[in-house]
Design a protein around this nucleic acid. Structure first.
Length: 597
RNA sequence: GGGCCUGUAGUUCAACUGGUUAGAGCACCGCCCUGUCACGGCGGAAGUUGCGGGUUCGAAUCCCGUCAGGCCCGCCA
């Protein structure tokens, strides 16, 4: 029986005889004395074996190699004064191996080195194929542990301090309109019919409020069949919450306590409260995005009114066609950013173009308020306009002003991306800062020009702001997002609980009463039997783990993630199946899988 | 669906403008070494340059296709 984890041995254990199990992290053979670093999930401890002091274990120590699994029985000893290792938590002690038992050898060459001391990067493709070895390494082991600690902190807070009850909701459920593409599964028993995997437990958690559960939460697996990104996986985990009889302010306050509890218990970080709040309109105006990273400044400044009558057609035309002109002022930008980069072909021009901008106008502010720009702008700028621009943007000598002019969406998207790119480049982001803020008052709907219809921005169960009941298409929603360092970490809303309002919303998004009954009839009917006002929120748990771990990819927050092509390199899923299985499921394929390399 | 990047020994990388035997660190194997902790020393084995085709006297290098991985756009209520 194991008496200690390797990584837990300290000076206080000196003199004890211990039994350890673990992997050989590294082996140092001095031709007479052999040192083994024995590793388990808690850390490493140095094992010593030599022919004189430990004659029984020496022949075994001679044979074993890196990553062998062994059992070691021995005496915990204080290291000689000159051999202390302050780099290791266990560095004051070592274990003389009276006995080493080889439990499992490495029979093949390791695909990569596991050792804690190894810092060379490994191709992600390999890491994913041999994920069990990757998880053996310190970085991923630490990330998995962090994930566990975060979830533990969530459960402790929600259950012990806030009265939440965890309920599991179905994985086999029904497909719903709106939102992401569903993963669907054929039903063998019900010929020709299909289950869908949940995109979120949205409807069930609302039903649980009708059930009187009052406060529900779940660490819920969700599935969306959309293309992957560094921060998106087809299956991912939400912290899903729903609560009754609480208004927005109460929900946000409770969630701030939750988030603070997580950071405090897991990382010892005390977050400033309350979290700043921005309305959606304010966020878009000042940052051009609904998830601003406010660890740095570089705020956008609207100058439409100053330049609407400009002789420069790009400016006046943007206003004439209902758009906007905004400026991204960059202090010190004159030195940092060359003209070549702003002009067509330059990298910043490309960033702007990718966001839909047709061009990228700029003004350089020189000493004494002189400006430097292309003739077409300079020649069309009155002294008053120039003065107003300098004052409004707070430009100082050395400042670079980047202009976005055109449709509001494009201007915002362009300047948002430029803002982020330049903040990274100018090193304005403090990586140690934890920046959390709420964005509130989202619009209920946005116009989908392609399909010529209104779409719910959040989802169709989101309650409209009571002050905006006159014209729901223009209404604000009682919806809120939690933004962490520029990432959307969570989002939620108060829900509609009056059937009449729900019917209006369905009508606006073009869902007929028949369709609504067909898809959501069970929910609408449930609301006929006494429904508490309720609302909730869902957090992207993988994303939270990623950010708290300081990782760039959500894959590093998940034990067994998919590649960008939505494949599992470890299990080779997805795979073809036996035609008999398909027949049983009443399914006929229309494509054959391409052969795998 | 589209754009960009990457693929060379087990691994991380190198290899000039296309040039003759594709190198190095770590890992692996062998020998030596009793206080190292990324131990050290000597030696060794290890390559279908992702795959297929083309250009060329000659291709890791250039071209086409393809497979795989990554980043992004579209998409993701």
């Amino acid at each position: 029986m194991r008496s200690f984890y390797c990584g837990r041995l300290r000076a206080e254990h000196i003199g004890k005889t211990v039994t350890l199990y673990g992997w050989v992290d590294r082996r140092r053979d001095h031709g007479g004395v052999i040192f083994l670093d024995l590793r388990d999930r808690e850390g490493v401890i140095q094992i010593v074996s030599d022919p004189v002091r430990t004659p029984d274990s020496y022949p075994v120590a001679d044979e074993i190699r890196n990553e062998y699994v062994v059992k070691v029985t021995g005496r915990v000893t204080r290291r000689p004064a000159e051999s202390l290792n302050p780099k290791l938590p266990t560095g004051e002690v070592e274990v003389y191996a009276d006995e080493i038992e080889l439990l499992s050898a490495v029979r093949k060459q390791m695909p990569f080195q596991v050792s804690t001391a190894e810092e060379e990067p490994v191709r992600e493709e390999l890491r994913l194929k041999y994920r069990y070895l990757d998880l053996r390494r310190e970085r991923m082991s630490r990330n998995l542990r962090l994930r566990h600690e975060i979830i533990k902190a969530i459960r402790r807070f929600l259950e012990d301090e806030a009265g939440f009850i965890e309920v599991e909701t179905p994985i086999l459920t029904r497909s719903t309109p709106e939102g992401a593409r569903d993963f669907i599964l054929p039903s063998r028993v019900n010929e020709g019919e299909w289950f869908a995997l949940p995109q979120s437990p949205q409807l069930f958690k609302q039903l649980l409020m009708v059930s009187g559960l009052d406060r529900y939460y779940q660490i819920a697996r969700c599935f969306r069949d959309e293309d992957l990104r560094a921060d998106r996986q087809p299956e991912f985990t939400q912290l899903d919450m729903e609560m009754s009889f609480m208004d927005q302010a109460e929900i946000l306050a409770l969630n701030e306590r939750l988030v603070c509890h997580i950071f405090r218990t897991v990382q010892g970080i005390e977050l400033p409260q309350p979290f700043p709040r921005l309305t959606y309109a304010e966020a878009m105006a000042r940052y051009g995005t609904d998830k601003p990273d406010t660890r740095y400044g570089l705020e956008l400044v609207e100058v439409s009114d100053i330049l609407q009558d400009s002789g420069f057609k790009v400016f006046s035309g943007a206003i004439a066609s209902g758009g906007q002109i905004k400026v991204l002022p960059i202090p010190g930008g004159n030195e940092a950013v060359s003209n070549v980069r702003i002009k067509p072909g330059g990298d910043l021009f490309k960033v702007a173009a990718e966001a839909g901008a047709k061009g990228l106008a700029y003004i350089r502010v020189r000493e004494g308020g002189e400006i430097d720009t292309i003739g077409a702008i300079k020649d069309n700028l009155t002294p008053e306009q120039k003065q107003a621009l300098l004052e409004r943007t707070g430009a100082q000598p050395g400042s670079l002003l980047l202009f976005g002019a055109g449709p509001t969406d494009t201007v915002n998207a362009t300047l948002d991306r430029l803002r982020q790119a330049l903040a990274r480049e100018l090193d304005l982001i403090d990586p140690d800062r934890q920046n959390l803020l709420w964005v509130t008052d989202f619009p209920m709907f946005e116009w989908n020009a392609d399909e010529n219809r209104w779409e719910a921005l959040h989802h169709p169960f989101t309650a409209p702001h009571p002050d905006d009941a006159d014209d729901l298409t223009q209404a604000r929603a009682i919806a809120y997002d939690l933004v962490f360092n520029g990432y959307e970490l969570g989002g939620g809303s108060l829900r509609i609980y009056q059937p009449e309002v729900q019917a209006q919303v369905f009508e606006i998004i073009g869902l007929s009463e028949a369709e609504a009954q067909d898809k959501f009839g069970f929910l609408l009917e449930a609301f006929e039997y006494g429904t508490p006002p309720h609302g909730g929120i869902a957090y992207g748990l993988d994303r939270l783990v990623m950010l708290m771990a300081g990782e760039q990819s959500i894959r590093d927050a998940i034990a067994f993630p998919k590649t960008q092509q939505a494949r599992c390199l470890l299990t080779q899923a997805p795979s073809s199946v036996d035609p008999r299985q398909l027949k049983e499921l009443h399914v006929a394929p229309t494509a054959t899988p391409k052969p795998q390399a």
